[in-house]
Nucleic acid binder design. Structure first.
Length: 813
RNA sequence: GCCGAGGUGGCGGAAUAGGUAGACGCGCCAGGUUCAGGACCUGGUGGCCGCAAGGUCGUGUGGGUUCAAGUCCCUCCCUCGGUACCA
């Protein structure tokens, strides 16, 4: 158990993503946790006060599905799994700080979700609105945009295709932080995650341009039609406009003789909006409204169309179409015979060259053409001047648009944190009333019943649903939506610091000294969910004065994913889940740990195959042998002419290994670390049974070997360390209380080297010599070699390249 | 399409301030040990030619830079992850 108040040592907060209590640990949990445990152990050996907590992300749908199937309450199912997994976790030999555990489905945790929700609500960062939201028909739950995956737009949990529904829902205003979330200054995160978050936020710089509808027989004109464009420099190339079919202006400006067609198209769009509309390779469709718009830069009248390739949810839901310089507009114009006007010309082309396809490249030497006073400018200058002129005439503004949407947190499920508001039914009604802090937590009922037809049991569980208005005391009912479980995981690392605190969500003092988290480890699958939400929460809670920092995790490492033997993601339904239990009982926890580390780079993962585990198992047995039985009984001991030299070479090898292993810890390069320890063990094995085996050098090498193994193979190293102490007659002390040893710099420098010699870049000889000789001496030694001479025979030496300590290359002709 | 990661023996993978390609392990082959099997130990193991010494080719493709390229530059191909008509 970590003493969080200890200020005498450097603090190190090591966090690994807490698991969902699905029932059993699988090999993937080991792949995340055991190397992370090695990090913890290594830091402890280096004198750090390490805080390495664990907990359970305990709300969520699997518990409900189990409950519906078996009739067990989700809480009972979940807590039983938690118990089981706690037990299984212990078999890893991971040094988790169990005293700091949090289980998010317990009232003493979710109470603070509610408290934080109320703070966000007060700050205007939580709000309720009617919106077209993604609905999973199978799970009967609304999904955040981030939880809808792939081109088919399926539910991230169950893979069912989602549909759109208009519902009143609670949101967190993550978009307020869009710009700051793009800034990764001061945190050391992997490039792929930063790229994914950056793409997800999707910042586009451009301008909103105000078009006006043109007057005609059926329409007096003058309606404002705002469009967003990233290319205001192409404004003169706009030959038509396109509105999303859902655009509010459609009804008002459609010509009477076009109404039938337009209504039919809008209806068609609604009907198929779920599937076909998403397909990018579908042929473009659309209909004209029979009304024109006026281009603010040149007064030109251009027709207004509606088409489903324009999305209502992005920008203003309307675009100016510039077919010469936008592929989609080009495709549309070609299909419907609309004019295409070139307004950007790449260098070396004439202004009116026949356009084939859309020219969209953005190069410094392209220029604006066919654009009145702006013709001849560079595209960049045209951009700036056109926007400036629009702004001066109130016809547009420079604008930034984002792809990211506010975080939809409402879930229509009973197994989550109740959103702490009530709906007053008094007359007059107080409306939506937040539950006062002193009435928290709003407890989940422990007696809710599912119905076969589905639906949220909280809506018919009167003990929960019926309440009184905290403001007027009149009749009221509770909000029955619960929070997305990603709310729980957006602040849990702070709660670990004081999981039992009853007066605060986050202990400010401990938060100030222990966070941000020094090192976070976990999978990359949460790149635009958990990892983005957590950054948002940190910034929001910082603005609310609840925490001191603006970034939650200083360093992030994403380990790869262990796939099933079939190369697919492990899942119960595929039947490819690997249970480590059998391997652990057969080979021991340390062999499983080392095998997972030895497989390859930690950030790579890969398909599971246990076929190589014999290798690390044999390795550990050889370690056992060299430590406990250095002399052996079998065979004739090999004789050494020079025991002293052999002993020294062993010492040199041990200290070089120590240097390299220390280095590998910094980059979590477990695979090469294990390989180097195997090499050292193989060398010890070679000297086993010889006079070297009893020497002080042997003793030092085996001592270092065990210390180097301690973080990664904690059980075997402890066992052998104990026996070693016993043999030496020294009082027992755990290897895990030992300090990480320093390597001896004098021992790692080579006292002789084999210098590679190339002739014309091809390796021809290895020349033994002392290191650091002067070049002319090296050349003399090299040229004296028969092999070198043979390769120079009859040729002229043009030059000799010396790379000190690396090689010599003789260039001949 | 765009963004990101990657392509090295039969397999997992080593090696990037350019400098001995294939560390380490699996598998396989041979030998030792064993009644036998297993386990363990020793040696071998990129392709081709060769008894060997040695030679030669070789890091997805094709070019380039360099005394020297898996590593740097350009072209193309493929695999995986993310995204998806975002204006």
């Amino acid at each position: 158990h970590t003493d969080l108040s200890d200020t005498s040592r450097p603090r190190f907060y090591l966090l690994t993503m807490y698991p969902y209590p699905s029932g059993d640990l699988h090999i993937g949990h080991w792949y995340i946790c055991t190397p992370t445990d090695a990090i913890a152990r290594y830091h402890r050996m280096n004198g750090d006060n390490v805080f390495f907590p664990i907990g359970f992300d305990a709300f969520g749908l699997p518990a409900e599905n189990a409950a519906i199937k078996s009739g067990v309450h989700p809480a009972a199912w979940t807590m039983r799994n938690v118990q089981n997994m706690r037990r299984q976790f212990r078999s890893m030999g991971a040094t988790f700080d169990w005293a700091s555990e949090v289980v998010t489905c317990q009232p003493d945790y979710y109470r603070w979700n509610q408290w934080l929700f109320l703070r966000l609500l007060e700050a205007g960062l939580a709000y309720r609105k009617m919106a077209a939201v993604d609905w999973c028909p199978k799970d009967q739950v609304v999904l955040a945009r981030e939880q809808v995956e792939g081109p088919d737009r399926v539910c991230w949990r169950c893979g069912t295709q989602v549909i759109k529904r208009d519902l009143e829902q609670w949101f967190f205003r993550i978009t307020s932080y869009a710009d700051e979330l793009l800034d990764f200054e001061g945190i050391d995160w992997p490039e792929p995650i930063r790229a994914m978050q950056t793409n997800w936020i999707g910042r586009s710089e451009g301008a909103e341009v105000v078009f006006l509808t043109a007057p005609s027989d059926h329409h007096e004109g003058g309606e404002e039609l705002r469009v967003f464009t990233t290319r205001p420099d192409t404004l003169f190339g706009a030959t038509f406009m396109v509105l999303a079919p859902e655009h509010p202006l459609v009804e008002r400006v459609t010509a009477p003789d076009r109404t039938a067609d337009v209504d039919a198209y809008v209806y068609e769009t609604r009907r198929r909006s779920e599937i076909e509309r998403l397909s990018t390779d579908r042929e473009k469709t659309g209909v004209p409204l029979g009304t024109d718009a006026i281009n603010p830069v040149n007064g030109e009248r251009i027709p207004i169309w509606i088409a489903d390739y324009v999305l209502s949810g992005y920008g203003t839901g309307a675009i100016m179409a510039v077919p010469a310089h936008d592929e989609r507009d080009y495709e549309f114009a070609t299909r419907f015979g609309l004019p295409i006007r070139r307004v950007i010309a790449p260098a070396g082309t004439s202004d009116d060259e026949i356009v084939e396809g859309a020219f969209i490249a953005h190069t410094p030497d392209e220029r604006v053409v066919n654009s009145g006073p702006y013709s001849g400018m560079s595209a960049d200058e045209g951009f700036r001047r056109i926007v400036a002129d629009l702004e001066s005439r109130d016809q547009g503004t420079a604008t930034v648009t984002y792809r990211i949407r506010d975080w939809l947190i409402s879930r229509q499920r009973p197994w989550g944190t109740p959103i702490p508001v009530v709906y007053c039914e008094g007359t007059p009604s107080c409306g939506i009333v937040p539950v006062p802090d002193d009435q928290l937590p709003v407890l989940l009922p422990d007696d809710f019943q599912y119905r076969p037809e589905g639906g949220n049991p909280l809506t018919w569980t009167d003990s929960f649903y019926r309440t009184t208005c905290p403001r007027c005391g009149g009749p009221a009912h509770r909000e029955t939506d619960t929070m997305d479980t990603f709310v729980d995981s957006s602040w849990y690392w702070w709660r670990y610091l004081s999981p039992q605190a009853t007066d605060v969500a986050i202990d400010t003092d401990l938060e100030g000294t222990w966070t941000p988290v020094d090192q976070y480890t976990g999978g990359a699958e949460h790149a635009v969910m958990h990892l983005l939400y957590s950054r948002f929460f940190t910034k929001a809670l910082n603005d609310l004065g609840i925490v001191h920092e603006r970034e939650p995790f200083k360093k992030l490492f994403n380990q790869g994913q262990i796939l099933g033997a079939d190369g697919e993601r492990m899942s119960k339904s595929r039947g490819n889940v690997q249970d480590p239990g059998e391997l652990v009982s057969r080979y021991g926890a340390d062999a499983v740990r080392l095998f997972l580390m030895f497989m390859g780079p930690w950030d790579q993962g890969g398909p599971w195959s246990a076929s190589g585990i014999e290798g690390v198992h044999r390795f550990l047995r050889r370690v056992w042998t060299v430590v406990l039985d250095p002399i052996g009984v079998e065979g004739e001991p090999e004789r050494f002419d020079d025991v002293w030299a052999a002993e020294r070479s062993l010492l040199v090898a041990a200290h070089r290994t120590l240097r390299d292993v220390t280095d590998d810890h910094a980059g979590f390069r477990w695979n090469t670390m294990v390989a180097k320890l195997m090499e050292l063990t193989n060398l010890l094995m070679r000297y086993r049974g010889t006079a070297v085996a009893g020497s002080a050098g042997w003793d030092e090498a085996t001592r270092l070997l065990l210390l180097m193994l301690a973080p990664i193979a904690p059980h075997v190293s402890e066992e052998l360390w104990s026996k070693r102490l016993e043999v030496a007659g020294v009082m027992w002390r755990s290897i895990h209380a030992e300090a990480w040893p320093p390597f001896d710099p004098a021992l790692v420098v080579a006292d002789s080297i084999e210098l590679p010699v190339q002739v014309n870049g091809k390796l021809r000889d290895l020349v033994p010599m002392a290191p650091g000789l002067p070049p002319d001496e090296i050349e003399r030694l090299v040229m004296a070699r028969p092999k070198v001479q043979a390769n120079l025979d009859g040729l002229t030496v043009v030059k000799v390249v010396h790379v000190p300590g690396r090689l010599v290359n003789i260039v001949v002709r």
